[in-house]
Amino acid sequence: MSQPSFRWYRPKNLADASQYLRAHRGAIPIGKGSRVQKRRKALGEVVDLSNLGLDYIDVLETVEGKEVFLGSTTALERMETSEVLGEFAGGLLRKAVRHTLLRGASAAKATLGGELASCGGTSLIVGALMALNAVVRLHKGEVVEFLPVDSLYTPEGELALLSGEIIEEVSLPAAYFDGRGDLLFSESFPQIALVIYLKSVRGICEEINIVLVGVCPYCINLASVESRIRGRRWEDIEVERILKYDAFSWEIGKESLSEGQILELRHLLQRGLESFFA
């Protein structure tokens, strides 16, 4: 069977890119064209977004903190060295990017948009963005839509975007800037990771988000226990209570988790939470 002919299209703007993608449903949007030169025959048709001004890390100062905006063609390498991402939530997203690069991000995942589009919904970066309640700006031709990161994927882990829809930007809410976040890895099950984020204001705990990565074909938000713990000080929150609050949510992934994995994850989460509260 002959390979499809290759075409490299450079749109004038996002509207042009969206229109082209709708007309050429097999075309693939990319952010760093020079990285796929060797894969031309395999790709067939490419829409190069690298000249549309989407490579940026912008900061907006607000009364709640720094709101951060990430263009979809921003390189993961740039995010990994960003000072503002090192400050945001204790560097949670930057840690996720660093681990992704250490694991060998492929050419298709060299940018933020490429990672979101090709990871299948199971990614440390997606997990960190979910824990931070990040918002995606989705360009849909004539309109723009804002949606949470997990809305990009189907329950089967497939990208849920329609033809012509383009990930334009991801924003990190300023309210999450001063929280603490970390990645927790299991020694027994290295394919599994927990992303944890704790938000507080002047020592008062407001929110705890825990995301499971690497078991199902999508990240699972195991616990968002804001309503149960709001108003408590850090030292007043018992780890066992948090584990109990998310007991129902653990059932979401039970079919994909063995009893040993569930036990290991609970121990991992407990150790991680205790280190936060120490």
Rank of each mutant, 00 (worst) to 15 (best):
L43M: 15
L129E: 09
A128N: 05
V201W: 09
P217R: 07
P173N: 06
A131R: 02
E226M: 11
L147N: 01
L129Q: 05
E255C: 04
A17F: 08
D178H: 15
R266P: 00
V84A: 07
V84F: 06
L263W: 08
M130R: 08
V195C: 11
V135P: 00
E251A: 12
G33V: 07
L92D: 10
L194S: 08
N221F: 09
G127E: 08
G181I: 05
E206S: 13
S82C: 04
I204F: 11
L159S: 03
H99L: 14
L49E: 04
G33L: 07
V215H: 03
L138N: 06
A110V: 12
G157Y: 08
A89H: 04
L222C: 02
G90Y: 12
W234R: 13
L184Y: 08
L93E: 14
G26K: 13
E240R: 12
T100A: 12
A105F: 09
V149G: 14
R40C: 02
T122H: 03
L172R: 04
R40W: 04
L194F: 04
H267K: 12
S50L: 00
Q261N: 02
K12D: 06
R233C: 05
N221L: 14
L162S: 15
I208Y: 07
E145N: 03
P155T: 11
S258V: 01
V225W: 06
A128V: 04
V68K: 07
